[in-house]
Design a protein around this nucleic acid. Structure first.
Lengths: 120, 120
DNA sequence: TACAACAGTAGAGTATAGTCTATAGTTGAT
DNA sequence: ATCAACTATAGACTATACTCTACTGTTGTA
């Protein structure tokens, strides 16, 4: 599919898709048999990746981190061991985020308690 | 205490503290009896706030959101009802973040599984 | 064949959250 | 009195992650 369709299917703007492509997160392919244009074609894997990127962004991963995870999954540039190291590293950082969120919940519940009991 | 001491005690740079002050998150007080300088003085509550800001930033709250929470706790500009609304809103967004992190964990565990079983 | 809708590249602009520099005045120990 | 270390203000600069504009070329339907 071309970028317009990809954009419509994922809900991610064409500009942002191009930004992700320049950032190395996704990659379209040009058809060498077509010489009249330089249109890029995208497949289902790219759609998968874009959905992953959206999810990963909302948990606070940076583009760089997302790139690492994508490479650990879709790429051949790492050994098995390296891939597992990257993914384990991200799991640890998710555990850390989870812990921080739980702490923040406690803190805000405490704030609520203070408000209810007129301690502020 | 003056800004240097505040910075040392909280581990937040003087520049960043000033940035937070300009952003309305914290507020130093000038001593009206001292006319020779315009130094700002900070108290324990400011330290508390700065610690809260650090925690809130790491769970992904923006400066604006952090400002709302701080105002809901330390400020008199909202009614009790408004304060509780703001805090409940933040609790909901924390629940949402937790859900997203759990999903992301599942996804990355799946990636690991794929790597281990040579499916990628 | 005209032309709207699409494709690409390059680069400028925006928002957020700092981070740093320049300048000028103040304080406190020697 | 000197001077290092501090303080304040204003504004420039940086990184991240977009978002938009300008420009040019292509495709497909009327």
């Amino acid at each position: 599919m071309l970028i317009n369709e990809l954009s419509k299917k994922t809900g991610i703007s064409i500009h942002t898709i191009r930004f992700y492509e320049k950032s190395g997160l996704i990659e379209g392919k040009q058809d060498p048999s077509v010489k009249s244009n330089n249109y890029f074609h995208y497949d289902e894997v790219t759609m998968e990746k874009l959905e992953f990127i959206s999810d990963a962004k909302s948990v606070g991963f940076t583009i760089k981190e997302i790139g690492q995870i994508i490479d650990a999954w879709y790429n051949r540039k790492y050994t098995k061991k390296e891939k597992l190291e990257i993914l384990d590293d991200k799991l640890i950082s998710l555990e850390q985020k989870m812990k921080e969120i739980k702490e923040m919940k406690k803190q805000i519940l405490q704030f609520k308690d203070d408000v209810v009991n007129d301690r502020c």
